[in-house]
Design a protein around this nucleic acid. Structure first.
Lengths: 200, 200
DNA sequence: TTCAACATACCTATTAGTAGGTATGTTGTA
DNA sequence: TACAACATACCTACTAATAGGTATGTTGAA
């Protein structure tokens, strides 16, 4: 896992990315204030002091985690939105399924943005800004999909893309939160089915 | 503030309740893992060690906070549901307004249940159970209101009380989370208007 | 004189972060 | 092409601060 004295091969991610990945996982499962450098140290196999070499402060790490996630998410979103074989409604449904699969169904993780959003009052401004950017990006994609569907009369006539996207985003976060609380994935599926069928 | 050497008057809540109230406030603003006994000590004017006299562990305090909140909330919910002058739809809207007023509009607080629900993987079972009970209670009230409205044909014909209540609960939590993130109360109002008008 | 409700004084564990050192890799220049 | 100078990526050892928690002492009121 360590790069010290070794060449980096294709099968070996560099340490910095390992730290980001493990940080992402820890934030999604335990939250910002419930994970420590020691947790990362144990998983990555690097001393806590060495983590500071890559990320001087915990805030720096958190920012890197969110920025990295934004890139990954945008690629993923693009894969869905650019699929010409799907209707806009199908794209939105697929997006929801995809979120469930990468969060609760993957070690009961929460959405990264949501997990950090809840700590907004205790996060330093750079992290808060990064989280806003991440949520903003996902919401913009949703609004675009709804807007597209509206043009082709795929959705209800009087739909408002922006407020509907906002409501959809909120329901995704909230339902994920309650799915984790009750450990019942049907909560997510049922709630999203109701919302999508009524809102769109 | 302290009761030591003083009689408890009507204007003076007892220390135990003061600790619970301050704990409630701290959890709603900072979250479980970002508040300490020292924070409570500073606000209540009691030494941290003395808090342990009333609540042996942090878990005990958290449970007391949630149980206390459940009682308060249920009284509040009853005041709304038992108001004969309101339609079921009006009751639900009032309930949403009331939640916004007591959370984001009050020092940017989050819903207590939501704030703890997010930490489900790091909370001890008694706390998790208490949070489930609290959310369950609110959700049951919502389901009852929807069920009542359905009987009087106040809502859409094909409405399902339980799944609609679940979706509504999720949207309330999620929209509150994003309202705090972006510090924009219109997010709550807009999203809830869309949801209520489409779902009910 | 008992005892509830505190305070004092501590403990152990953990936190993020720092200081200084070391082995290896890279690079510009003579 | 040799090598000094520097960069990279770690290490050990440490710090100050904070966390939740405990054992024991004090005090005023019933």
């Amino acid at each position: 896992m360590l790069n010290q004295h070794y060449n980096i091969t294709s099968a070996m991610k560099d340490t910095k990315q390992c730290i980001i990945d493990e940080g992402t996982h820890l934030i999604q499962t335990r939250g910002y204030h419930a994970f420590s450098f020691q947790d990362i140290s144990n998983k990555v196999g690097i001393k806590t002091a060495s983590i500071h070499y890559h990320f001087p402060t915990k805030t720096d790490l958190a920012v890197a985690v969110v920025v990295s996630q934004k890139e990954t998410t945008e690629k993923h979103l693009h894969n869905i939105t650019s699929n010409g074989a799907l209707t806009e409604r199908e794209k939105i449904k697929l997006l929801c399924q995809s979120i469930l699969a990468t969060t609760y169904l993957s070690e009961e993780k929460m959405c990264l943005a949501g997990m950090l959003a809840i700590d907004i009052l205790t996060l330093e401004p750079p992290v808060a800004q990064a989280v806003q950017n991440l949520i903003g990006s996902i919401e913009a994609t949703l609004a675009k999909l709804i807007s597209n569907g509206a043009k082709t009369n795929e959705f209800r006539r009087d739909i408002d893309a922006q407020s509907t996207a906002t409501a959809l985003m909120a329901t995704i976060e909230g339902t994920l939160m309650l799915t984790r609380l009750f450990k019942d994935e049907n909560r997510f599926t049922d709630a999203m089915d109701v919302i999508i069928s009524r809102l769109l």
